[in-house]
Design a protein around this nucleic acid. Structure first.
Lengths: 338, 338
DNA sequence: TCTGGCACTCGGACCGTGTGAGTGCCAGGA
DNA sequence: TCCTGGCACTCACACGGTCCGAGTGCCAGA
C-alpha cells in the first residue's frame, strides 16, 4: 500500500502534468506544492510510484508523467468532483432554457458541454427502449394505403406509410385504431409485440392480412426507434490534443464518426452514476489515448440516455466530471418540464 | 493573354503539386511532362506566370506552387471533369440502393462522398422551399385536439398537434381536410399561405377560430420545414491536410461545426451546375485555405438541395468534381424513385 | 526515515558547414 | 523573335559536433 505522502506526490504530478503538459521533475514538484519534504525524498517516492506502474518516464533524465493506472488511482482515490461556480450554473440553465424541441435540447447540450469542458462532447438522444406509447394513429390516404403515426411519451412522433394488398374499410380502420390503442397506450415499446400478437385473429378473414401488415410496420418502427442516435460536437477541441497531431487525432476522429462505436462505448458505462474510462480501458483502439467521462441523464429518476465527453487522458478530471454532472442534471430538468 | 504553352506549364505545375505536395521546379517539370522545351524556357514561362500571379515561390531558390488564382484558371480553363470508372459507378449505386429512408440516404451519401474524394463531405437535406405538398391529413385525437400531418413530395413527413379552444365536429373536420387538400396538394410551400388565406371565411362562425388555428400551425410547420439541415462526414480526412496541422485544421473544424456557416456557403453556390470556390473566394475566414466543390441535386430537373466536399486548395479538382457530380446524380435518382 | 551532495545521463538547443535544387540572366543560334 | 545552354548565385535543409541543464540514482550522514 502506498503511503499518504506518496499518494500526495502522485496527485501533485497529475495536477502539474495536466496543467503544463510537460513531464514533471522532483524539484519543480517541491517548489509548486507544499509537500514539506526535499526533492530527494520526492525522488524516492517517485521511484516507488514508478515501480508500481503509476508513473513513467518518457526517457531517462526526463521528468515523470502519469500512466493510465496513475490516472485511474487519481480519479478513484484522490480527485473529487469539482462543482461548477454559480455563474457557470446560471449560464447552463439560461442556455438550455431557450431550447424549443428535442433536437434543439440535444444540440444545445452538445455545444454547452463542448464549451464548458473544452473537449469533444457526446450526447445520446433519449433512448426509447424504456419509453411508452402515448398514441397510435391510423389514417387512410387512399383505399389501399394507410399512414401509421406513433407518438411516444418523450414527445417523439414517427410515421410510416403502409401499403396494403386489399382495400381496408373505414369501419375496420376505426376498429383497428381503437383496439390497437386500448392495448398499447401507456405500455413500453418492448412489451408491444406480445400485446398485439393475437390481434389479427380477432378480425374478419378479409382484413387479417392488412392488420398483420400494419402490425409488422408498427413493430418495425418501434425497433427502428429504439435504435440509438447521438450527436457530437466540439471536435475542434481535438486540436488541443498534443503536438504529434496527425497520428493522435486521426483515429479519434474516425472513431467519433462511427456512431456505432460511440454507442457501444456509452452502453458499456454504468447506467447510474458517473463512469470514467481511461486510456486503454477503452476497448476501441482509436480511443486508447483518450479518456471518456460519461453519466446517465433522464427526465425522472431513471436514466433514459447518456452523455459525456471524450478528451486526452491528460485532462482535468475533477473539472470535467463536474461539468458533465451539472449538464446532465439540467438536461434532466429540461426534459422533465417538457 | 497567356500563350498556349504557358497554360500547359501551369497545368503541369498544378498536377505535379497536387500529386507531390511539394514546390515544383523547372527541371522536374520538363522531366515529368512532355513539354518539348528546355528547363530554361520553362523558367521564363514560370517567371511570367509568377508576374501574373498564378504561381508563387514559398521562398527564393524553391520551386513554385500555384496560387488561388492559378487554381482558378486551372479549374476554369485547363481541367475537365474526370468521369468515374465503371466499377466506381456501380459501387455508388449499390451503396446508395440499400438506403431505407431519407436520413439513411443522406447518411450514406455523406459517407460515400467522403470515401470517394478522401475529403470532408457535406450533404444538405433536400430543401423544402421548392418542395410541394403531397398530402395534408387531419385527424381528431380528442374532441378538441387534432393532429396535422404533412407529407411532401420529397418523402418527408411532419406532424404537429393542434389544440383547439372549441370541439370540432367530424364533418367539419372532413370538410376542412378535403378543401385544404384540394387547394394545396401539388403546390409549393411558398405558395400555400396565399392559397389558404380566405379559407376560414368559408366556414361556419363556430368553426372559424379552429380553422384559423389549424392553418397557422400548418404555415408554421411549413416555415420550420424550410429550415435547412445538413450532415457532414469524413472529418478524419482533414488529417491529410498538410504538415502544419493545428493552425490549419482548427478553424476548418470550427467552421464545419457551424452548420449555419456551411449552409450560407452552399447558398452562395450556383443552383445549377457545379460550383468551385477556391481559397480566399470563400467568405468565411476559417475556410480561406480550403476549396469547396458543390453541386445541386434533386429528384427531378430541379435541384432541391446541394452537396459537396471541402478540401485543401491543393486537391485533385477533376477527380473531386467527377465524384461530386456522379454522387449527386445517383442521389437524385434514388430520391426520384422513392 | 529524511536530507544534502555528487556523479552521471541524455534530450534538445545552438552553430557552422556542405550540398543540391532551383533560380535569374545572358549571349548565341534557329 | 523565341528558344537554348551555360553560369553564377541563393538559400533551405540535412548533417555532425558541442554545450547546457534538468533530472535522475545512489550514498553517507543526521
Amino acid at each position: 500500500m502506498l503511503s499518504e505522502r506518496r499518494l500526495e506526490v502522485l496527485r501533485a504530478i497529475v495536477q502539474d502534468y495536466v496543467g503544463t503538459e510537460e513531464p514533471v521533475g522532483s524539484k519543480a514538484l517541491t517548489e509548486r506544492h507544499k509537500l514539506g519534504v526535499s526533492p530527494a525524498t520526492v525522488r524516492n517516492d517517485m521511484a516507488a510510484l514508478e515501480d508500481e506502474g503509476y508513473i513513467a518516464q518518457p526517457h531517462t533524465s526526463a521528468g515523470r508523467i502519469p500512466t493510465d493506472k496513475g490516472y485511474r488511482l487519481f480519479v478513484d482515490k484522490l480527485a473529487g468532483v469539482k462543482p461548477l461556480s454559480v455563474p457557470e450554473r446560471r449560464a447552463i440553465q439560461n442556455f438550455l432554457d431557450g431550447a424549443v424541441d428535442l433536437d434543439d435540447v440535444v444540440g444545445r447540450t452538445v455545444r454547452l458541454l463542448a464549451q464548458l469542458t473544452r473537449q469533444v462532447a457526446v450526447v445520446q438522444y433519449p433512448s426509447l427502449t424504456r419509453s411508452t406509447v402515448r398514441h397510435v394513429e391510423l389514417l387512410a390516404l387512399a383505399p389501399a394505403r394507410l399512414m401509421l403515426v406513433l407518438i411516444t411519451d418523450t414527445g417523439r412522433v414517427e410515421q410510416r406509410l403502409v401499403d396494403c394488398q386489399t382495400p381496408f374499410g373505414e369501419t375496420s380502420l376505426a376498429d383497428l385504431r381503437a383496439r390497437l390503442n386500448s392495448r398499447v397506450v401507456g405500455r413500453r415499446f418492448t412489451d408491444v409485440p406480445q400485446l398485439v400478437q393475437d390481434l389479427p385473429e380477432s378480425f374478419e378473414q378479409d382484413d387479417r392480412a392488412t392488420v398483420s401488415t400494419v402490425l409488422s410496420v408498427l413493430l418495425e418502427t418501434l425497433v427502428e426507434e429504439t435504435e440509438e442516435r447521438l450527436m457530437i460536437g466540439g471536435t475542434a477541441n481535438l486540436t488541443r490534443f498534443g503536438h504529434d497531431f496527425p497520428l493522435t487525432i486521426r483515429p479519434v476522429l474516425e472513431a467519433l464518426e462511427e456512431h456505432v462505436v460511440l454507442l457501444k462505448l456509452l452502453g458499456e458505462a454504468k447506467d447510474s452514476g458517473m463512469t470514467v474510462r481511461i486510456g486503454h480501458e477503452n476497448a476501441h483502439e482509436g480511443l486508447t489515448s483518450t479518456s471518456v467521462v460519461t453519466v446517465g441523464y433522464g427526465s425522472g429518476d431513471e436514466a433514459v440516455a447518456k452523455l459525456g465527453v471524450v478528451g486526452p487522458t491528460r485532462m482535468d478530471y475533477p473539472g470535467t466530471m463536474g461539468a458533465v454532472r451539472a449538464v446532465a442534471r439540467y438536461v434532466g430538468q429540461i426534459l422533465a418540464e417538457s
